[in-house]
Write a protein that binds this DNA or RNA. Structure first.
Length: 748
RNA sequence: GCGCUCUUAGCUCAGUUGGUAGAGCAUACCCUUCACACGGGUAGGGUCACAGGUUCGAGUCCUGUAGAGCGCACCA
C-alpha cells in the first residue's frame, strides 16, 4: 500500500547537498526582490540588514542576527507583504585602516606615512573588496533572503553622496560646527574618538598628595603628577572653610623645571571630601578641568603632552613618555620633600575601543554635531514633533522613542537609551585617519566651502580628516533606499518596519539612526527595534581571537546545516538576553531536521492520490476545516482544530516578536504530538507494510487528508526558521501550488 | 554613586495577559518493530536565589536582601 515517493526521502536529510542548490534557485527566481513577488502586495515590510564590516568574517553574532531578521522577513513575505531585506556592508573606517596598517607594518616594515594617503587608501580598498565577497557568501549560506540587487556599501557612490548631502544640510542648519575643544585622543590610532567609543577599564593606580612648592599653601591630590606641569589653577569647593583665605590669590613657582602660574579658584565641581579637597586644574589634559578653566577665564592652551603621549615642556621631563614622566616627577617631589602621601587606589582608565590605547585628553580643532541647538523640521511624521516647532537633536531622539513612533518594546533598553540621552554631549565626528568619508569641507585662506568639491578645486584645500564611521552608518536606513533623491524605494520602504541590532550599539548606532532620520526626513528609521543580546561561548565568555574560543558558523553549517544552526540560535533564547552558544543544541536541531524529513516521508508514502480540495492554496483566513469539508471525520476534525489553534498561537507569537517561543512550539508539536502520537496512531488506521489496516476506507481517507494538511501547514510555519529543509520538502508535496514555499501563503 | 538584566532539573535555557513546573543535552534501563538509531519506550532528577506582601491561587505582580553580569557617571 506504500506509495513510491521521491527516492531522496529514503536517505537521511542531507543539508550539505541541499542548501546550496536551494539558495541558488531562490536567488535565480528573483523573489528576494519584492518587485518580482507574485500576487497583489500592497503593504510594504522592510528590514535593512545592519551592515557587516568588510574587515571581518562571519561570526556567530552575525549568524544570530541574520537568523532573527530573516525569520521576520520570511514570515512577512508569506503574509503577502512586499518584503524587502536590504543587504549591505560597512567600511568600518578605523578598524579596517588599523588592520591593514598593521599588516603592512608587519610584512613590509612601512608606516602609513611611508606609503602616503593615496597609496594607503588604495591598499585598504583592495583589502576591503576581497573581504567583502567572502562575507557576502557567508551570509548567503545562512539562508538570508536578501535582495542583492539593492546591495549597498558604505563607501560606494550613492552612499558617499548621501553623506555629503547630510553633512551639508546639518552644517547649514548650524547643527554641525567646527570647534577647538578638549577631545578624546587615541595616541595609538592617532585620532580623536567619540565618547561612545571609549571603554573604561579598572586598573590599580596611585594617588599622590603633594605641594607644588615649599611656599605653596595648599596640598593637592592627583593620580597623574606628570600633567601638573600644565596646571593653571587650584580649584576648591566654594564653601570649603579650609581654603577661604586663599581664594583669588595667585602664585608663581617652578614645578620640576617648568614655570607655572597658579590661581586659587572656587568651583562647585570640586568634591571637598576627595583627597585634600583641592584640585590642580590642568585644562589641556582633562575634560573637567577644561570646563573649570572656561568658567573662570583661565588659559586653556597650556599643553604639556603631545599627540604621542610624550611630554612637551621645558627641562628634564621633555620627551619622556607619560609613565616615565610620572616616575620622574615623583622622584623630584620626593627629593624636594614635597610629596606628602602615596596611596593605592583603583581607577577607571579610559581606553580606546578599537586600539586599546589609554586615551589622552587634548585640545583640538574638530568637527562636532550640536545636540543642544534648536532647529525646526519642514516635515514631520513623528508624533510629538510638529513641523515648524523648535526642537533639539537630543529632544528629537527622546521623543521618537517616548512617543512610541519607534517601538522599543524592551523596557530595560528604553531606560538605558534615555539615560544615555540625558548624559549626552556634542558628538565629535572628525577622525584623523585616511580611510572613510572625507569631510566635505574646502578651505582657501579664510574662505570655507561645504558640500561638493568646488570647480576650481586646485586652489582649495580639502579638510584632511574623515568622518566617524557611525556618521554614515546613521544614514543607513535611508541612504540604502536612494536618499537624497525622492526615490520610489524611499517612499515605499521608509520608515523600515523592523530592525534587530545588538545592545552594544544601542547608543553608537540605534540612537544616531533616529537622530539622522528625524533630522533629514522627519521620520523614524524603523517602526520597531528589537535589541538582541550577545552570543557568548558555553561558559559565558565573549568570543575573541585572543582567547581562541571562536566558533566559525560555517563550520557549524558544514556539520549540522544552516537550518539547525538557525534553530540552535533562536530557540529558547529570549531576545535581549545574552546567548550561551551550545553546539549540542545545534546538533539536536539537526536531528529534528531529519525527524521532519522522515515525518514527510511517512506521510507521503501513505498519502493517497490527492483529494481535489487539498490542492487549493490556503487563502489567508482559511482553516483546515475549509480544506476538507466533506472528507474529515470528527476525530480528524479535532486534530485539525488542535493544529489550527497551535498555528494561531504561533502566529500571535510571531506578531509579537516571540520567535523563540513560536519555533519551540512548532518543534514540540511536530515531534512529540504529530510524530510520537498521531503518526503512531495513524499506523493502525492506515496500515503498514506488514500489518494491513482493517479500518474502513472513509476513515483512511479522512486521516490521510489530515496528515497532508498537517505536513503542509507545518512546513509552512517552520519555513521562517528552517528555510532550506522546509523548501526541500515542499517541493515534493502534492499540495504544492506555488513555485516556492518561500512565496506561498502562511497557513493561518 | 545612579540604573538595567539575570538567579527555574547535573549543564544550557524557555515559561507571552498569575491557574497543579517544561525543552535540549547529560544520566539509568529496555528495544535494531515495518517513517526515522540523526530513532522508539521507560525512569530518575526542581522547597522556581532568599525573606516578606497582594491574591481563592505567584516561577509569573509588589517590597526588601544576597549573588552574578552589564551600562552610565565620578575617577583631581
Amino acid at each position: 500500500m506504500a506509495k513510491e515517493v521521491d527516492p531522496k526521502f529514503t536517505k537521511p536529510y542531507d543539508p550539505a547537498g541541499t542548501e546550496g542548490r536551494i539558495y541558488e534557485a531562490w536567488e535565480k527566481s528573483g523573489y528576494f526582490n519584492p518587485d518580482n513577488l507574485p500576487g497583489e502586495r500592497t503593504e510594504p515590510f522592510s528590514v535593512v540588514l545592519p551592515p557587516v564590516n568588510v574587515t571581518g568574517v562571519l561570526h556567530l553574532g552575525h549568524a544570530y542576527e541574520d537568523s532573527l531578521q530573516d525569520a521576520v522577513i520570511r514570515y512577512a513575505r508569506m503574509r503577502g507583504k512586499r518584503a524587502l531585506f536590504v543587504p549591505g556592508t560597512d567600511s568600518a573606517a578605523i578598524a579596517t585602516q588599523a588592520r591593514v596598517e598593521k599588516n603592512i607594518q608587519k610584512e613590509e616594515g612601512k608606516s602609513r606615512h611611508d606609503l602616503g594617503r593615496e597609496e594607503l587608501v588604495r591598499r585598504i580598498t583592495a583589502f576591503a573588496k576581497e573581504s567583502e565577497s567572502t562575507i557576502l557568501n557567508q551570509i548567503r549560506r545562512m539562508g538570508a533572503s536578501l535582495d542583492w540587487s539593492r546591495y549597498a556599501y558604505a563607501l560606494d557612490k550613492a552612499r558617499s553622496r548621501a553623506v555629503t548631502e547630510a553633512f551639508t544640510r546639518m552644517y547649514k542648519a548650524g547643527l554641525i560646527y567646527r570647534g577647538y575643544r578638549i577631545v578624546n585622543w587615541d595616541p595609538k590610532g592617532q585620532t580623536t574618538i567619540s565618547d561612545d567609543e571609549i571603554v573604561y577599564e579598572e586598573r590599580p593606580g596611585k594617588l599622590y598628595t603633594f605641594k607644588y612648592s615649599k611656599d605653596f599653601p595648599i596640598s593637592i591630590a592627583t593620580t597623574r603628577p606628570e600633567t601638573k606641569a600644565g596646571d593653571v589653577a587650584v580649584a576648591v569647593h566654594p564653601e570649603d572653610p579650609r581654603y577661604q583665605p586663599f581664594l583669588g590669590k595667585e602664585y608663581d613657582t617652578v614645578f620640576c623645571d617648568v614655570p607655572v602660574h597658579l590661581k586659587i579658584v572656587a568651583d562647585a565641581a570640586v568634591d571637598p571630601s576627595f583627597g585634600t579637597g583641592a584640585v590642580g586644574v590642568t585644562p589641556a589634559h582633562s575634560q573637567i578641568d577644561w570646563e573649570i578653566a572656561r568658567r573662570h577665564a583661565l588659559p586653556t592652551d597650556n599643553v604639556v603632552i603631545n599627540e604621542y603621549a610624550k611630554m612637551k615642556v621645558e627641562g628634564r621631563l621633555n620627551g619622556l613618555k607619560a609613565a616615565e614622566a610620572r616616575a620622574a616627577v615623583v622622584d623630584w617631589l620626593q627629593s624636594q620633600g614635597l610629596l606628602e602621601k602615596e596611596e593605592d587606589v583603583l581607577q577607571n582608565i579610559a581606553t580606546a575601543e578599537r586600539t586599546g590605547a589609554v586615551i589622552e585628553p587634548l585640545p583640538k580643532m574638530q568637527w562636532w554635531v550640536d545636540v543642544e541647538k534648536p532647529f525646526t523640521l519642514a516635515h514631520s511624521s513623528i508624533p510629538g514633533i510638529p513641523a515648524g516647532a523648535p526642537i533639539t537633536l537630543k529632544q528629537l531622539m527622546r521623543k521618537a522613542v517616548e512617543s512610541g513612533a519607534v517601538a522599543m518594546p524592551q523596557e530595560g533598553f528604553r531606560n538605558a537609551y534615555f539615560h544615555w540621552i540625558d548624559n549626552l554631549r556634542d558628538w565629535c565626528i572628525s577622525r584623523q585617519i585616511w580611510f572613510g568619508h572625507r569631510i566635505p569641507v574646502w578651505y582657501r585662506g579664510e574662505e570655507i566651502r561645504v558640500g561638493e568639491a568646488p570647480e576650481d578645486s586646485a586652489t582649495w584645500l580639502q579638510d584632511p580628516d574623515v568622518l566617524d564611521t557611525w556618521f554614515s552608518s546613521a544614514l543607513w536606513t535611508f541612504s540604502t533606499l536612494g536618499w537624497p533623491d525622492h526615490t520610489l524605494d524611499l517612499g515605499t520602504y521608509h520608515p523600515t518596519a523592523f530592525m534587530s541590532p545588538g545592545y552594544e550599539i544601542l547608543t553608537l548606532w540605534v540612537s544616531r539612526m533616529i537622530l539622522m532620520a528625524g533630522f533629514h526626513l522627519g521620520q523614524v528609521p524603523f517602526k520597531t527595534v528589537l535589541i538582541h543580546g550577545l552570543v557568548r561561548d558555553k561558559s559565558g565568555r565573549k568570543f575573541s581571537k585572543s582567547q581562541g574560543n571562536g566558533i566559525d558558523p560555517l563550520e557549524m553549517i558544514d556539520k549540522y546545516g544552516a537550518d539547525a544552526l538557525r534553530m540552535g540560535l533562536l530557540v529558547g533564547t529570549a531576545v535581549g538576553n545574552d546567548i550561551k552558544f551550545d553546539e549540542q543544541k545545534v546538533k539536536g536541531y539537526k536531528h529534528f531536521a531529519n525527524k521532519l524529513w522522515n515525518i514527510a516521508r511517512f506521510i507521503l508514502e501513505s498519502a493517497p492520490d490527492l483529494p481535489a480540495a487539498a490542492s487549493r492554496e490556503s487563502a489567508p483566513g482559511r482553516s483546515a476545516k475549509s480544506y476538507y469539508p466533506s472528507t474529515l471525520l470528527p476525530v480528524d476534525q479535532e486534530l485539525a482544530d488542535e493544529l489550527d489553534s497551535l498555528l494561531a498561537d504561533v502566529t500571535k507569537d510571531l506578531e509579537e516578536s516571540r520567535f523563540y517561543l513560536a519555533a519551540e512550539k512548532l518543534y514540540h508539536y511536530a515531534w512529540h504530538r504529530l510524530a510520537d502520537e498521531i503518526l503512531e496512531e495513524s499506523k493502525q488506521i492506515l496500515g503498514t507494510k506488514v500489518a494491513p489496516s482493517s479500518a474502513p476506507e472513509a476513515g483512511k481517507a479522512s486521516r490521510q487528508a489530515f496528515l497532508l494538511y498537517a505536513l503542509d501547514a507545518l512546513v509552512k510555519a517552520l519555513h521562517p526558521f528552517m528555510p532550506f529543509l522546509t523548501e526541500e520538502i515542499y517541493q515534493s508535496l502534492p499540495t504544492k501550488n506555488a513555485e516556492f514555499l518561500m512565496i506561498s501563503h502562511w497557513p493561518v
